[in-house]
Simulated assay, not measured.
Amino acid sequence: MPSLDISIPSASTNSTGAKPYTAYTIQIRAPLRTRSLQKRYSDFVAFDKTLRVQAGAAPPAPLPAKSWFARTVGNDALTEERRRGLEAYLRAIDSSPDDRWRRSAAWRAFLELPEEGSTKSKVLGNIGLTASGGVVMDAATWLDMYGELKNQLREARLYLTKREQAQQAQAQHEAGANAKGALVQAGALIRALEEGLKGLSGGGRNGDEGAWGGVEKLGDGEVRRRRDMIGSAKKERDGLESVLSAMAVKSAASTSSSLSGTTAVASEGDKQGLFRGGAPGGRGRVLGAPAKETERTRELDNEGVLQLQRQIMQEQDEDVQDLTKVVRRMREMGVAINEELVLQNQMLDLLDNDVDRVQGKIDVARKRVDKIR
């Protein structure tokens, strides 16, 4: 487990309860964001006891000694000394070559860290929820997800390099499957980022207002910058997928050419294996037969196929939603045209009445003119 950048920059006195206490602010810095949380000295004591039990050994640095004078409100010198001791305690665990303390559940729970190895899975697991509107994405989460997208593209590039350098078919297949899985996950991340950017720019799915409720919006310049980031990542992903497809076609061509040049005769067992699982007599449909492989599923494992299926279903849902919007818009246009036609008919009726009235006046005027003559 990689080490963190942990510090305790300050301590404050909380007097809201019946008994005042000192709260220490723990700051955890990451490349994309910084988190802060507050803990009391009693929390450190409970954490230390649990950590000793789970790790089976004492931490590399002891907790600062407990002193009655440190409880005195306004004793800044003792509070500062304890703050430095607690900071040294956490940093000793974080920088220790032995990571058994950092891998314990107590360490993750105390610092409110995700489960081990779930930094990636947490982001990927929320993709479907984000795209469906179940999770509200803020600006910092968006950057975390973009960082995970870059990691997926980097992994896909590394696997493609391994596939190109591999000499055996099994190694090529494994590297290609891993690259395809990374690209599928990258595609899901791109769609989630696009959906999240709509919410951050005020174009979400929350009714006609089109905004994620309770999330601050980004400025137009920042929205354009992040949209360009998505565009460049999408181009990179498409390029890597094209390279993978070309590798697959090249591998299939070389395999077929090698098979066409062989003179080996199929054994009786091989012949029987061709019809194994079929209907009696070799006719009829075989229930539960595997689906035909395509270029998109050729080098995917079970998890990759499942992720690809979710991606296709999500794309279909988005197409249905777009179609629903078009049909609703056409219906609104039809209703508006009908209302306009009704209004025009009423105006024509009024014009017809005015013409009849004016025609009657003209007839009366002509009769009077005839009498004068």
Rank of each mutant, 00 (worst) to 15 (best):
Y146W: 05
N151V: 14
F69W: 11
G134N: 08
S67N: 13
L124H: 04
G147L: 08
N151D: 15
Y159I: 01
Q170A: 12
S118E: 12
P114V: 10
G128Q: 05
N126F: 10
E81P: 01
S132N: 09
A175L: 06
R102I: 04
L153W: 02
L129H: 11
A106Y: 07
A140H: 02
G117Y: 12
E81Y: 04
W142I: 03
R157V: 10
A166K: 13
G85D: 01
K122N: 11
Q152S: 11
K122H: 13
E164T: 14
G134P: 02
E155M: 15
A175I: 06
A77R: 10
E174C: 08
T130K: 00
P64Y: 08
G133T: 11
M137H: 01
L90N: 03
A131H: 01
W101R: 00
L153S: 02
S96G: 07
G117N: 15
S132K: 03
W107G: 01
Q152N: 12
R163G: 15
P114N: 09
R83P: 10
S118L: 11
I93W: 01
L86E: 03
V135L: 07
G147R: 07
L86A: 02
E164S: 15
L158H: 14
V135W: 02
L63P: 03
A65C: 13
R83Q: 10
S118A: 13
N75M: 06
G128D: 06
T130S: 05
E112R: 12
R103M: 14
I93H: 00
A131R: 05
E116Q: 13
A70G: 06
W101N: 00
A166V: 14
S104T: 07
G117M: 15
G128A: 07
R91A: 10
Y89T: 05
P97E: 06
Y159G: 06
A131P: 00
Q167G: 14
L78P: 02
A156W: 03
Y89W: 04
T141L: 06
L160A: 09
L160K: 05
M145G: 00
N151S: 15
R83M: 09
N75C: 12
L160Q: 05
A156D: 04
N126T: 12
Q172F: 10
L149H: 02
K66S: 10
D94A: 08
A65I: 09
V135F: 01
F69S: 10
V136N: 11
D138Y: 03
W101E: 00
T141V: 04
R108Y: 11
L90T: 04
D94F: 06
S118D: 14
G176Y: 04
A166G: 13
L129C: 06
A171N: 11
T130L: 06
D94P: 01
L158Q: 14
R100K: 12
M137I: 03
R103H: 07
Y159R: 09
N126G: 11
L63G: 01
M145S: 01
A109N: 13
G133H: 08
R108M: 15
G74W: 08
L149P: 00
I127N: 02
R103V: 09
R163D: 15
T141P: 00
D99I: 05
R154I: 11
G125L: 12
T79V: 14
